[in-house]
Structures are given as structure tokens and as C-alpha cells.
Design a protein around this nucleic acid. Sequence first.
DNA 1: AATAACCCCAACCGCGGCTTG
DNA 2: ACAAGCCGCGGTTGGGGTTAT
Length: 268
Amino acid sequence: MGRQPCCDKLGVKKGPWTTEEDKKLINFILNNGHCCWRALPKLAGLRRCGKSCRLRWTNYIRPDLRRGLLSHEEEQLVIDLHAHIGNKWSKIASRLPGRTDNEIKNHWNTHIKKKLVKMGIDPVTHQPLNQDPNSTDNPKNSCSVSDDISMVTKSSSTKNIETNGTTTEDESISTITDQNSSMDNDNHQLSNIYNDEEFFSYLWSDESTKAETPWSDSNYDVGGTLYHDNNVSCAGADFPICSPERINGVDWTFQDYCQDFGVHDFGF
DNA sequence: AATAACCCCAACCGCGGCTTG
DNA sequence: ACAAGCCGCGGTTGGGGTTAT
């Protein structure tokens, strides 16, 4: 009955990944994809459990990741999405290309949360801290916050966030869009997301996946049919290279990604 | 210079939903 | 139908790095 055990708990390594382990993981996934996380460690010669490999790949190694702090616009988007859907980090991350749920969660807990509290905003309800969360009063009367955050707060506080997963939309999204109207091209993607009225119904639904992110947008699906364009030879092996992807107005290739987060150290 | 306090984030843990046999 | 296991998600933590004293 049932499946085989996921992994042999005995002899499974824990803790920080070494460069050597990363190299093995990258080499294996680039050559074979990650069709099955359970089998991957053994096939790749890693003494890790599949879960750990998946985490390492999705949160750190994945070539489409953007490193570094979240931009101001990304931060605003996170705040607004959080006001709508709460701690659905994976869904929030699906709207920030190159960002992981773990990264956003960390950023929320270490930066945004504190920032909101400092501004007198409850990071859970997105209401002013001294105001009854159920109240529909205009928060502007009871709270003074910075322009950026107050805009977000205003938008979220004029909305009924219900626990059953439905919400009554109003002009809040366009409010934010107005604010973003002065953004440069790099930020248009984000403002478009704000402006996407269908987006929030997408988020509420179970249909939402990461299918719209650049990563799973076919170009980076190493588990499937991807790397269709070119190959590059390295250390006697052919590594597939994806088509350039446009993120925030910049054309990226797999090599760019690798260089950006240091995979060149592995010999790519 | 030493050390205490704080910050940050990679990685682990546990749970729920889904899949498999 | 059901038990066992996988996968993905959100919460939490440990330790390295940084700043303050």
C-alpha cells in the first residue's frame, strides 16, 4: 500500500549547502530537470532529502531569481497584495517575477512589518493601529503616515476583506495605479499588475499558479520541454541555454542569471 | 579591541491537500 | 475506499554578519 518512503532519513545531510552540493544540484537539473524531487538526490549524488533539494533550488539556485532588496515598487505591491490576500506568500511571489515566497516572507517580517507598525498601521489588518478593524471610518482622520503607505492603507481599508475568500472591490486598485502613473518603464509591469482587475479574482481562485512567471513560462521549465534554443559546452557537457527573457526592461539570458548570483563560480 | 545586542536570511519543521497504489 | 507518501506552503529558528557600546 502507498508509496515508497521519500528518503532514507539516516545519512541525510542537513544544514547549509556547500558549493559542491550546489554544483551537483545545478548540473543534474540542467541535464535532467527535476521530474521527481524524491529521486533527485540519489540520482544527483547528493546526501540530501528531496525536500531540501527543492527548497534549495526554488529559493536560491533557480536561475531566474533576482537577488538583492525589494525595490520600492515591489514593496508597495507586496503590501497591497498582502492587504488583499494575507499571508499567501506564494501567490504574492507569483506576481513578483524573480522573487520567491521565502524571500518575500522574510522581507515582510524583517522590514515591511516594522515599517508599517512604525507608521501606526497594523500589519495584519492594514488598519490604523488605534482604530477598530471593523470600523469603516476613513483612516485619514485617525492616522498620519507617509504618502506611500497611506495610499496603500487607504486602498485596503476601503475594502471589505472577508475570511471566506471573497472581497468587494472598489476603486482602490486604480488609486494605486494613479500613483504609479509616473513610474518609468521598468515599473510599468508592476503598475499593470495593480491595474489588473481580474488579478484579484485570479488570486482568490484555486486556478492561480506560477504559470505566468517567467520561470515557468516555458523558457525555464527545466523539468519539461525547455532550453529549446541553444546549448553551451562546459566541462565536457552541453548545458542548455534559454532564450533571453525580459525582466524589468532588461534582456536576460541564462548566463546573465548565473553571473548575477554567482553560478559562474561553478564553471558555467 | 572586545563583546553584547541586534538584524537578516537560508534552511528546517510541520501541516494540509493531493496523488498513488 | 483507504492508507501511505509526496508536494507545496506558511511559520519558525539558528547562526553568521553587522552595529552599538
